[in-house]
Structures are given as structure tokens and as C-alpha cells.
């Protein structure tokens, strides 16, 4: 058979494209649920990490369902928005909205023990580091002022310097810090170059040599918590 005829080439390529397109469609459809599940589980693990509950990809979903008892969505006026699922809020998209008032922010409530009423409130953060996006979750005690725990991660900060933000050593500094001062004014938590004074409730040590990432982290915490500010002031005890 002459394989160089135009008609042959035409038919050959048509069949090839059809067969491969069909095969890929089947594969993609079959695997889609598993892939989406992976992304969900990673998010659940991150949220759990901010309230210091360890989890593995296998048990994350069960733990999450057990510990995260309540979720809701708020707007920048501090009101709860009905009909939205907090877990499905994509913070990156929300922050891109031009009008502040339209932005929505998720809140997750964690009750670690069934028996008592201890509750932690988890908020989501997202901002810019030196080389790319940084993000994280921060959890507060029921007073909505004292930090209970946090997790940060980054896409590609400088190894050994900015990249230190995702280490436990750095994150543990935030525990016990307060975001409101004595007069109930919102002050956020700053990263302090050269180390903080021991009793400073609003500052943590910046990463030496990772100035830009530290500043980016500080801005991220300030900007995102600012959006939560009204909600936090209205509901704090």
C-alpha cells in the first residue's frame, strides 16, 4: 500500500487523533475524582496543621470531619454570608476582586475534644513572598485575639533563608501572640529584624537574611487579618 498518498495520510491522522483523544478522555474522566480528592485532602491537612493536629493523607478526611465542627464564610463587613461553603472558597481568587466589599473569607471552627467546649477559630492567609506566593492558616483561641497555632508555606522562597517560614521552629514563635492591643486596636503581628523583646505580644523574630520574605509574611498576616478584623472585633469575648 502506498503510505505517501494524501488520502492515506489524511485518514491515518484522523483515526490516530480520534483514538488518542478517546483514550485520553477516558483516562482523565476515570482519574478526576481521585485527583480532586488529593487537593481537598492537602487543604484539610493544612487546616489541621494550623491547630496542631497531625494527620496523614489517609486519615486526614476522618480527622477533619471529626474535629472541624463548623465552617462559615464572612465578608469584610464582618457578617456571615449564607449559602457559601467555606471549604470551596479560593482565597487567591477572592483577593483578586477589585471591590473589597465583595471579597469573601472562610472561617473554620475546630473543637478538638468532644467533651469540652474548647474551640479554635481558623482563618486563611495568602500573600506575596520574595519570589512567589506564600500562604497559610492561622488559628485563634476563643478570645479571637491570641494565636493558637499557624502554618505557612511558600512556592519557591530562597532555601535556607525565606524558605524557613514553613519550619516548625519559625511557626511556633507565633503561638500565644496577640493581634489586638490593650485598647482593642488591631495591630497584627510584626516580624522584627534582629529579634524581639521577650515579652512583645505583637512581634516575632524575622528570619535573618530573609528580610523580604519576612516582610511579605508580615504584610500577608496584616492584610488578611484586616479583612477579618470586623468579624473578630464583633465576636470576641
Amino acid at each position: 500500500m502506498n503510505t505517501e498518498k494524501n488520502s492515506y495520510i489524511f485518514i491515518y491522522s484522523t483515526i490516530m487523533v480520534l483514538v488518542i483523544a478517546a483514550a485520553l478522555t477516558v483516562v482523565a474522566l476515570q482519574l478526576k475524582p481521585a485527583q480532586e480528592n488529593n487537593i481537598r485532602i492537602e487543604k484539610m491537612q493544612n487546616i489541621l496543621q494550623s491547630v496542631k493536629i497531625p494527620s496523614t493523607p489517609k486519615d486526614a478526611e476522618t480527622i477533619y470531619k471529626e474535629k472541624i465542627t463548623e465552617t462559615f464564610v464572612i465578608n469584610t463587613q464582618g457578617n456571615i454570608v449564607e449559602g457559601k461553603n467555606a471549604f470551596d472558597i479560593n482565597l487567591a481568587d477572592e483577593l483578586k476582586k477589585e471591590n473589597d466589599a465583595e471579597r469573601l473569607f472562610p472561617v473554620f471552627v475546630c473543637s478538638p475534644n468532644k467533651n469540652d467546649t474548647v474551640k479554635y477559630f481558623i482563618v486563611q492567609l495568602r500573600g506575596k513572598g520574595l519570589w512567589g506566593p506564600i500562604w497559610g492558616y492561622m488559628s485563634f483561641n476563643a478570645d479571637l485575639n491570641t494565636v493558637y497555632g499557624c502554618m505557612f508555606d511558600h512556592k519557591g522562597e530562597t532555601p535556607g533563608l525565606g524558605a524557613e517560614i514553613n519550619t516548625a521552629v519559625f511557626q511556633s514563635q507565633f503561638v500565644g501572640k496577640k493581634i489586638f492591643d490593650e485598647n482593642n486596636k488591631f495591630v497584627s503581628i510584626a516580624t522584627v529584624k534582629g529579634g524581639t523583646k521577650d515579652d512583645d505580644p505583637h512581634g516575632v523574630d524575622a528570619i535573618s537574611g530573609g528580610t523580604i520574605t519576612s516582610k511579605g509574611l508580615e504584610a500577608m498576616i496584616y492584610d488578611c487579618l484586616k479583612a477579618y478584623e470586623l468579624y473578630l472585633t464583633n465576636n470576641k469575648k
Binding site: M16, A23, L24, Q35, N38, I41
Partner: peptide, 23 residues
């Protein structure tokens, strides 16, 4: 082109499998 299409199809399948099972 035929070679590329075959390779591309296989690569996409491998990529999808990794995303599903080795996230």
C-alpha cells in the same frame, strides 16, 4: 507528528496517574 502524538498521549496518561495516586 505521529511520534509526538504518541509520546504526548503517554505523557499525559502518566501525568494524570501521578496526580491521582502520587500527589
Amino acid at each position: 507528528i505521529v511520534q509526538l502524538v504518541v509520546v504526548a498521549a503517554l505523557v499525559i496518561i502518566v501525568d494524570q496517574l501521578l496526580k491521582a495516586f502520587l500527589y
